[in-house]
């Protein structure tokens, strides 16, 4: 997990029905004062905006340009323009489709499991009695803060047939001889990889859900309880519907993050035995093989896929990302 989008964007109702009406200047004609405010706004927001644009958009354009060439770093004089044929190679190659499949599998499974586990953890944090609340919240933050590479090594050493002890611990299980080489086939290797990803990132999702839980009005749930609704009914009829936005934001962020999975796989299997994902394929092609053209093309495809996912999610969930000014007080 390379960058963790940690915060919930302000998902706002279309027009904030704020009784104070903001400062009531939203539709005012542009006065001298408004122009000065706009100038000041850009002076303050400009530097951060400029850096983000420069660091992201220049490389994207460069990557797209490079992807049109057959270009190997160790043979610079043989660089030639090949149009879109690098993309042809990618889309006609089973290696790409299998990497896409594995990436999708990891994304779907981890997000699904994390959503359930994360909700349970959020409930624990929300309801915990005072004496254990601090402790619960502290330990949950440990996986969140730990370096992904460190987490990957921890899980790898645990399961490894050479330095691990998991095989020993579970050798009593019938049909399991304690000699399983976890990283020698896709199924068990992906199991450990997903396990470690889930351990590392569930706290993030549970904190987003905790924020959502806090928004559920207590009186609604109590009223339902008085009306004789069971705990299960209250969960499905009252709590979850009121958390819809938080759940969707959590899913969106984690799905996009899971789609970029790299660190754990790089450490544990380096893509061997059916654990190759798109990020690793892009890395191995452009950094390992020094095939700048082909590698850039994979990067562009990966970037477009993430963009597409985000677009579908944002449109589908109808999330107003920018929120509005002064809505919350």
């Amino acid at each position: 997990m390379s960058s963790i989008p940690t915060t919930v964007p302000a998902v706002d109702a279309e027009a904030p029905d704020d009784p104070s009406g903001g400062r009531g200047r939203r539709k005012a004609p542009r006065s001298e004062r408004a122009r000065a405010e706009a100038r000041l706004g850009w002076w303050l927001a400009g530097p951060a905006f400029f850096i983000m644009v420069a660091v992201i958009f220049y490389p994207v354009l460069q990557a797209f340009w490079d992807s049109l060439f057959s270009y190997r770093l160790t043979a610079p004089e043989e660089r030639e323009f090949v149009g879109l044929s690098n993309y042809g190679v990618i889309f006609s190659d089973p290696v790409f489709w299998s990497a896409l499949g594995v990436t999708t599998l990891i994304t779907v499974v981890t997000v699904f499991v994390e959503l359930i586990l994360g909700f349970m953890l959020a409930m624990v944090m929300h309801k915990a009695i005072k004496s254990t609340r601090g402790l619960v919240r502290t330990v949950i933050l440990v996986p969140y803060g730990i370096i992904t590479v460190v987490s990957a090594f921890a899980w790898y050493y645990m399961f490894s047939i050479d330095s691990g002890y998991i095989n020993n611990w579970f050798s009593w299980v019938p049909g399991f001889d304690g000699q399983l080489n976890w990283f020698a086939q896709g199924g068990s290797a992906l199991f450990v990889i997903m396990f470690s990803e889930i351990w590392k990132t569930t706290p993030f999702i549970s904190l987003l859900l905790l924020a959502g839980l806090a928004q559920v009005p207590d009186d609604l749930s109590e009223a339902a309880a008085v009306d004789g609704a069971s705990w299960w009914q209250r969960l499905w009829r009252v709590i979850l519907p009121n958390m819809k936005a938080a759940i969707m934001v959590a899913v969106l962020f984690r799905a996009l993050d899971a789609f970029r999975v790299f660190d754990s796989i790089f450490i544990m299997t380096n893509g061997a035995y059916g654990t190759e994902v798109l990020s690793l394929l892009a890395y191995r092609t452009s950094i390992g093989r020094l095939e700048i053209g082909l590698g850039s093309a994979i990067s562009v495809v990966l970037f477009l896929l993430v963009g597409l996912l985000a677009l579908i999610a944002v449109k589908g969930f109808n999330v107003d990302l920018a929120g509005g000014r002064g809505g919350r007080k």
């Binding site: 047939i161 000699q179 020698a184 086939q185 035995y273």
Partner: peptide
């Protein structure tokens, strides 16, 4: 014959 961990 290469042991259970041969593949890694």
């Amino acid at each position: 014959l290469g042991g259970p961990g041969l593949a890694t």
